[in-house]
Amino acid sequence: MFSPKLLLISAIAVALVGSILAISSLYANAQNDEEKAVNSRGMGYYQTTGDVLDPAGSSGSASTGIEPMKYLRTFNYGRVSTLPNGTTLREFTMIADDRQTMEISPGVHYNVWTFNGTIPGPTIRATEGDLIRIHLINNGTHPHSMHFHGIHRAEMDGVFETINPGGQFIYEFYAEPYGLHLYHCHVQPLEEHISHGLYGVYIVDPKTPRPDADEMVMMMNGYDTDSDGENNFYTVNGVPFYYMHHPIEIEKGRLVRVYLVNILEFDQINNFHLHGNLYHLYRTGTDMEPDDYTDMVTMSQGERAILEFTYQYPGQYMFHAHKTEFAEKGWTGMFLVKE
């Protein structure tokens, strides 16, 4: 039964079959299914029958639960009434929550902490001298607060009164000075509360309005989705690369005013570079005279500036962080200038 010859022959047979299998498996993948293209924009193309991952390309346009296009030009003026002394009162209800998970980039889900369910939180806008009343409700599982930049009394600073889960608080202060400000949660650990998304833009208009313009808000942020103290994504207005596949349409010859705020956590030095144009820069927006005429502004966390520019030529123009790491991890967008 076990003759050496038989064993010898079978050993050789096994070796032969093994070799054939090994070689044939090398060519086995060459089957044609429905093919899709990966376009690496200058780095080449690749045809695949598998799935395409391209957050910056057309496949990145999938709904993410955050709406950067809506956020861009939405300003909340509050419920307006006039006090007996003639002062305008603006009332806002803000609901803090920390239980949501959102798709912050195509296919990537992250536990976001939000004001009124969005990242960034709603843009609050008032005119200098208005009385602002914010009704904060904490629907989350952690204590939260709202800290506004600007001039106000110590009790309204949102630092010492932390609002526990289920709690409420009313902030009241006058809108001053005019300029571009921001608000964010100021509960420890601050890094955690800010990096998860509890922030928003707060604009105080001067009593004499600025010239008419196409106005928009840009909040520069990041997401550390694996909690290693470094951002995995950088964005403007909440979704990486969003304005690459949804360019912002603006008109040729019309003044554009960008309210630009940097809230970036961890590596906080961020910047804004505009292609094919330069802008007048109003740091913090607290002066009507521009500080600079440039295409590059660099800001640390909490810094902000108003940018004004007008395009002379139609076409597509990029804007992005001129820190290529940020740009290639999502902080890149496009203006589409129309006739």
Binding site: V38, S40, Y46, T48, T49, D51, V52, L53, D54, E328
Partner: peptide, 11 residues
């Protein structure tokens, strides 16, 4: 740096 890619056979 985030790059476009394909995953075969499936993501």
């Amino acid at each position: 740096r985030i790059v476009p890619a394909a995953v075969e056979p499936s993501k």
